[in-house]
Each structure stands twice: as structure tokens, then as C-alpha cells.
Amino acid sequence: MGKKTLIVLLMVAMAAVLYPLYESYQGSEQLTELGQYYADNGVQDTGAANLVTSVVVTYRGLDTLGEVTILFLAASVISFFLSFKKEDRKESREIRNITEILTTASQVLIPMIYMLGVYIFVNGHLTPGGGFQGGAVIASGTLLMFLSNPDFKLSHKVIHYVESTSGVVFVLIGVLGIFMAGGFLDNRILGLGEVNTLFSAGAIPVIYTFLGLKVGTELSNVLGIFVESQNEQ
């Protein structure tokens, strides 16, 4: 078979491309120059104890803006593709029995999951986590809501307003950085404060809060579209 040989040849080529990387890997003993700069000056520059947060939000903030844009585009294209007319909606659909355990437990768990998500993105500059993780946790709370209540529907108005407001605020904070500090998305527009306290690291907690809200509503919206598309004939 020609196709099988082609696949094997491609795999061998890929392995040959990857092998030098594997062979030259020696398990480094010290940081690279760039990593060493972040380790030495990151806390003084940004005031955030979590260096990954300071890299994501401040040093490479423009990348994060692009990432949020890609996520927004993906969500828009999915809702464009999976939308359907009202006539195509099924009149009735068989709903699987939902157990008592799931409904009762979800009433207790959903507020706690949302609170955990908010905690994760508010404390992004102190502990592991941040806007993306908190947003994903909020979206999984919404998923539990969909599973425990088949008639639940997301309010499109709320999603729309929360999502677009937080996106605009994110860019506005970035533009403020040009006028009041060193450049786009500079976090020193607010005082850096004392490291390791909640109100520190300048604008990082504010940016991460809005980022978390944006990512959470976007992922919830994608889940909502997938659930809604089950009703199409």
C-alpha cells in the first residue's frame, strides 16, 4: 500500500526532525539569560510574587491580548456555525432522568465552584493560577449547571455585556499604561504596594479579574452553544 508507506515515511521524517532536540537535551543546571533576568528583576519590576503571572500579564501582555482575541474569534465562529432557525427546533426531546443526588449536590457545589474561580483569578499574582484558570473553573461550574438542569439557558444579554465590557476595560488599562507609565499594558499605573499582599503588583489583579470574567463568559458561551445545538432537528 502506497499510503501506509507514506505515513511511515512522514513519521520517520518527523522523528528525524525531533531527534536532535532530544539528543542535545542535557537537563540544564541553571537558567537561561532571559529567565535569569526575570528571576532577578521580576519582583522589583512588577511587584508580583508569581513570576509566570508577571510574564503573562506584563512582559508579554501583548501576546495575551492576541490570545484573548483568538479565543473570541473561535467563539464567534462556533456560534455562527452552530446557530439554527427557530423552525428547526425540536418540539420535544427525550430527557434522561436526572438523579436526586446530582440536583441536590449541584445546589451546594455550584456557588462554591464559582467562588473558587473568583478566588483563583483575584489571587493570580500571589498563588498559582490566574485569569485563564479561574475562567475555566467558572466555565466548569456552568457545565455542572447544564448537566443538572436540562432547561437551563444562558442569558445572552448578560454574557454579551460582561464579555464586551471586560474586553474594553482590558484594552483601556493597556492604553492608560502608555500615558501614565512606561508603555502599553504597563502595570505601574497603580502603586506597586508591598509584595505578597492582596493589594499589590499595580494593575495586575485588576487586569486578571477582567481577563478571568472574559474567559469565563466566553467558555461558558461556547458550552452553551454546544448544548443548545442538541435541540436542532
Binding site: G27, S28, E29, Q30, L31, Y38, A39, G42, V43, A49, N50, L51, V52, T127, P128
Partner: peptide
């Protein structure tokens, strides 16, 4: 990095 800890200072 060998023996490294998470980048949280």
C-alpha cells in the same frame, strides 16, 4: 532546571 522550585517568590 534540575532540583528547581516553582517560579513563585
Amino acid at each position: 532546571v534540575r532540583g528547581g522550585i516553582a517560579p513563585i517568590l
